[in-house]
């Protein structure tokens, strides 16, 4: 996953999000990866692997107003398995049948994100398979999907017109300590011990640093912190 996200971070513009969504689809072997967002001015953008026909149909029919995924995720922040949503109304069922006919798949998992100043985004993977297969897949990859969703959103926020210059990715003193000792090859237990904190607390500092660094895992985060000169070993 890291090379894909690395590319995404380096690349410019919407095209980068488009190619990353295709690469992520292939990496996980799911039918579709879609990311769409509404910026703080209320304008909509999207990218992903749905067919052009389905995308056009969706926009033309203004399915935003019917789509249970949108209705169930707007203004919320917990990830959602589509099965948990309310598909019981007639318009929703019609919409779902049409979506399946257009190859969207009968399963889906969406991560809603509430960004700053009313920005809102949804990162979705969808697939055609039975419930057990989907449950096992989402269980195995839930964390990745949440992290990827936020990586996409960080990129999308760069397009915001009045975006303040990139807030410095400065790490807090504790995060610098944690990253530094990890870079020196200490185990987590040794780092926690050295800093006189529990391993759970250490995990939080590592996690917070990982997010600031846009990394998918600890190793990647340590490498980034070093290459950016945030830690010196």
């Amino acid at each position: 996953m890291e090379p894909i996200l690395e590319d995404l971070e380096q690349a410019e513009g919407l095209a980068a999000l488009q190619s990353a969504s295709e690469e992520i689809r292939d990496h996980y072997g799911v039918d579709h990866v879609v990311y769409h967002w509404v910026d703080s001015a209320g304008d909509q953008y999207g990218c992903g692997t749905y067919s052009d026909v389905w995308r056009d149909r969706y926009l033309e029919q203004n399915y935003l107003r019917v789509d249970p995924v949108i209705l169930g995720c707007f203004q919320r922040f917990h990830p959602v398995d589509w099965k948990r949503l309310d598909w019981s109304s007639k318009p929703a069922r019609t919409f779902q049948a049409e979506a399946i006919a257009h190859g969207v798949g009968n399963q889906g998992f969406s991560v809603p994100i509430r960004g700053p100043n009313g920005q809102f985004a949804l990162f979705t993977t969808s697939h055609s398979c039975d419930d057990d297969v989907w449950a096992a897949w989402t269980d195995a990859h839930r964390r990745d999907l949440i992290l990827i969703a936020h990586t996409f959103n960080e990129k999308a926020l760069e397009f915001e017109p009045d975006r303040a210059p990139e807030q410095s990715q400065a790490l807090s003193p504790r995060e610098v300590d944690a990253m530094t000792f990890l870079a020196m090859g200490y185990s987590r237990a040794q780092v926690a011990d050295t800093l006189s904190i529990s391993e759970h607390t250490l995990r939080v500092y590592i996690e917070s640093a990982r997010f600031k660094l846009g990394a998918m895992n600890t190793t990647h985060a340590v490498a980034r912190a070093m290459s950016r000169g945030l830690i010196v070993v």
């Binding site: 922040f77 003193p173 504790r174 939080v204 996690e207 990982r210 997010f211």
Partner: peptide, 24 residues
């Protein structure tokens, strides 16, 4: 914690900087 939180806005000095993560 990727949005506004009380911990980061009012108690940041107790925790050595903001805690921000999609899984916290």
């Amino acid at each position: 914690t990727i949005g506004r939180t009380m911990v980061n806005e009012h108690f940041g000095d107790l925790i050595s900087g903001p805690i921000t993560s999609p899984v916290i």
